[in-house]
């Protein structure tokens, strides 16, 4: 598996590790800080927003892999079935990574994509729990929460995305990344 990472056209382990560490910090912040805010309508999902931003910047491979690792960590920290958020986050990371080309064209694209990723991810969580017969909320509530998560994600994306872009450029270091 690691020879895939080492090849030239793919990603470097350092990027994945940095992404996973950042998302793990977001994991704790999400349950200890964001979940306590009691925002109207629902809450924003810090982990999904960061994951979508990372996948937009670094591509589908980093998105899928860091999403999977953090998903497993989130599952281990929770009391639901192991692997369900790993599945959702892995898919979100991959799918968002696929449109990374489009993100360079316009400022609106990252906003829409990050908002859409939060919406779909929240819906995905609800869907997978109901498939497993452990539905935590009704369909209407799930949709409402997903919409709220999407709106909040669009609101905080302008702050998160440029920061991550800068960090990514710095992490890339000498690599000729600025040319893009």
């Amino acid at each position: 598996m690691w020879d895939i990472l080492d090849t030239e056209e793919s990603v470097r382990p350092r990027t994945v590790v940095a992404a996973v560490v950042l998302l793990a910090v977001a994991l704790v912040a999400q349950v200890s800080i964001v979940a306590r805010l009691d925002l109207p309508g629902g809450r924003f999902d810090l982990v999904l927003v960061l994951l979508a931003a990372i996948a937009l910047i670094e591509g589908p491979l980093v998105g899928a892999m860091s999403g999977f690792v953090v998903g497993v960590l989130a599952d281990l920290a929770s009391s639901h079935v192991l692997g369900q958020s790993a599945l959702v986050m892995c898919l979100i990371g991959y799918a968002v990574g696929l449109v990374m080309e489009a993100a360079e064209r316009s400022v609106a694209v990252p906003l829409a994509v990050i908002g859409g990723a939060s919406l779909l991810g929240t819906l995905g969580y609800a869907a997978i729990t109901s498939i497993l017969g452990e539905a935590a909320m009704t369909g209407g509530e799930a949709v409402g929460r997903a919409l709220a998560a999407g709106v909040y994600a669009v609101l905080i994306a302008p702050f998160v995305f440029p920061l991550l872009l800068k960090a990514s450029r710095r992490l890339a270091g000498g690599r000729a990344r600025g040319g893009r």
């Binding site: 349950v31 999902d45 929240t122 969580y125 935590a136």
Partner: peptide
């Protein structure tokens, strides 16, 4: 000290 899990389904 923490509410729910990260997916919001717990």
């Amino acid at each position: 000290i923490a509410v729910g899990d990260v997916t919001g389904t717990d």
